[in-house]
Structures are given as structure tokens and as C-alpha cells.
């Protein structure tokens, strides 16, 4: 008989000698609607324990961010600053060099332009010279 076995388990249960498996068996037995009359009085206990397992924590878990360590913040700030100055300086130097390069290029271009113009004038002069030579030879 199922209920005979349950009765034995119940006795063991109150002596705290049941194993986890046996306790699960008891719990399942009382969960089923089919509980023998003599064991009826234990029903509330096991039903309650079953219910108690379902209770849940509904509160929130408000985790404050861990206390901030300002010493490390200052270390980080110094590092950022140092990098900033280093790379900032590099960048500025590069900008300056670029500027100088562009200026030089412009100046040279101007020079080349003017030289070109000079060449043209010289070419014109050459023409004059040639004509002059021709006239000299004819004479």
C-alpha cells in the first residue's frame, strides 16, 4: 500500500532521518489530491512547505556604483594631459611645418612665374638680336 510506505516515511521524517529523495516523495504524495484519511492532518504542513518554496524576492537590487577611487582618477588625468601635450605639440609642429612648406611653395611658384615672364622678354630680345644680326650681315 502506498500509504503504508508513506506512514513509514512520515515517522522517519519526524526523526529527521529521511533522505532528500524520500522527502521529495513525501512532498509529491501530499501534493497529489489523493491523501489517505489518517494522513490528512499532515497535509497542511507539506502543502505549506511546497508553497513556501515558491515565494520570490520582488524587491529591486539597487547596486550603487562602487565607491570611486579618486587617486586613480588623478593618475588617469595626468596621463591624458601628458599625452595631450605630447601629441598636441607634435601636431602643432606638423602644422607649422606644413605652413612653412606651403609658403615656400607659393614663393617658389611666384619666382618661377616671374622667371617665366623674364624668359619671354628675353626671347623677345633674342628676336630683336637676330633681326639686328640679319641687318648687319646684309650690309
Amino acid at each position: 500500500m502506498a500509504s503504508d510506505k508513506i506512514k513509514i516515511l512520515i515517522d522517519k521524517y519526524f526523526e529527521a532521518e529521511t533522505t532528500s529523495v524520500e522527502e521529495k516523495e513525501l512532498s509529491a504524495y501530499f501534493k497529489s489530491g489523493d491523501v489517505s484519511q489518517e494522513l490528512e492532518s499532515y497535509k497542511p504542513l507539506f502543502q505549506y512547505l511546497n508553497e513556501a518554496k515558491k515565494e520570490q524576492f520582488t524587491g529591486s537590487v539597487p547596486l550603487k556604483p562602487r565607491k570611486f577611487n579618486y587617486r586613480w582618477l588623478s593618475v588617469a588625468a595626468v596621463a591624458v594631459l601628458a599625452f595631450g601635450i605630447y601629441f598636441g605639440k607634435n601636431y602643432q609642429e606638423q602644422r607649422e611645418a606644413e605652413f612653412a612648406y606651403n609658403e615656400t611653395k607659393r614663393a617658389l611658384q611666384l619666382l618661377a612665374q616671374n622667371l617665366d615672364r623674364g624668359n619671354q622678354k628675353v626671347a623677345y630680345l633674342n628676336e630683336f638680336e637676330k633681326t639686328k644680326q640679319k641687318i648687319y650681315k646684309h650690309n
Binding site: T58, G59, V61, P62, L63
Partner: peptide, 10 residues
């Protein structure tokens, strides 16, 4: 109980 749980988790 909820307060206690929160406290412990914190």
C-alpha cells in the same frame, strides 16, 4: 525581509 535581502546583496 526585503530590506534585509537588499542590504545583504549590497
Amino acid at each position: 525581509a526585503e530590506d534585509a535581502t537588499q542590504e545583504v546583496l549590497l
